[in-house]
Write a protein that binds this DNA or RNA. Structure first.
Lengths: 151, 151
DNA sequence: GAGTCTATCGCAACACGTTGCAATAAGCAC
DNA sequence: GTGCTTATTGCAACGTGTTGCGATAGACTC
């Protein structure tokens, strides 16, 4: 694996990875990766499909989802489930992070690896469980809402 | 509110709670609560619908989901999303708990309040965020899988 | 360059969950 | 008991995501 740049090298990396597995690089996949890279934060499956269709109206949901699965298999993309159960996708080049969803104001904070470290450590010591930061999706009250919602 | 027994008093509590809100107690709701109580652990929406239909074939998904929403509103039931995004319901009489889903062996551990306390505390101190234990659903590797998956 | 193999695509159908609406029936006042 | 109000129900349609299958087309061998 060695060190590698993210971003513009992404397509290249993908082509190589696919070829190594006897798989193919197609225009549709290029579009899907582009769209995913362009929606830098998080995008639901439906949003991605819509944007892909803007560039290629012939694209179908199944193709998009299958490509996303493929990208995940290659470790280049991730998905997690939001508080409403909807899937949210993002490129793996984004720093690994968790999500904190506030049920008070509806905002979503990201939880970076540094902030999460003590949390993961405390989970491990309490349960022996090694939690994936990327699947860490908490719901609760953010500090601001906690302060204002003095009921 | 005051202290109250769970279990057999559940139906009674529900009737009172509904009446207080100008809402009604129907046979279908009774069935849904019974089914939920019978599937002691966790059941997906689809499973619940199927079981409700065994007792009342005329029940429809919308009715079941609406009743589940109602039960949640009354604080008598909860739902959370499993690792595949499917909804899972359980009665609130079950002790509040989180979920640890192991991606190695696929098992699900429950995380009781006592074990979760230090974790929630560490989340709060790292982020100011007060997380809901009932929505705490982690994915990762359990202790056993961590030990065996020395890759 | 021709032929073969097979990954990918588009389509169609399905599963789960949600929502809007009209019909029904439960609860209440008189 | 009669009539009114409105919560609940069933239906139908929709949105999101998944899966199976036949057709297509890209890549590889000879």
């Amino acid at each position: 694996m060695a060190t590698e740049r993210a971003g513009e090298g992404l397509t290249e990396r993908l082509q190589v990875a696919l070829k190594g597995r006897g798989q193919r690089w197609t225009e549709q996949r290029q579009i899907i990766v582009d769209v995913l890279a362009a929606s830098d934060g998080h995008a639901t499956g439906a949003e991605l499909i819509e944007r892909v269709r803007e560039q290629d109206p012939s694209a179908t949901p199944s193709t998009v989802y299958r490509t996303l699965d493929l990208l995940e298999e290659l470790g280049l993309a991730r998905h997690h489930h939001g508080p409403d159960g909807r899937e949210t996708y993002h490129l793996e080049e984004t720093v690994e992070h968790g999500h904190l969803h506030c049920r008070g104001c509806g905002t979503e904070q990201e939880l970076d690896a540094a902030a999460a470290a003590p949390i993961l450590k405390s989970i491990a010591s309490a349960t022996g469980f090694s939690a994936d930061l990327d699947h860490l999706s908490l719901q609760g009250l953010c500090a601001a809402c906690r302060a204002s919602q003095v009921s």
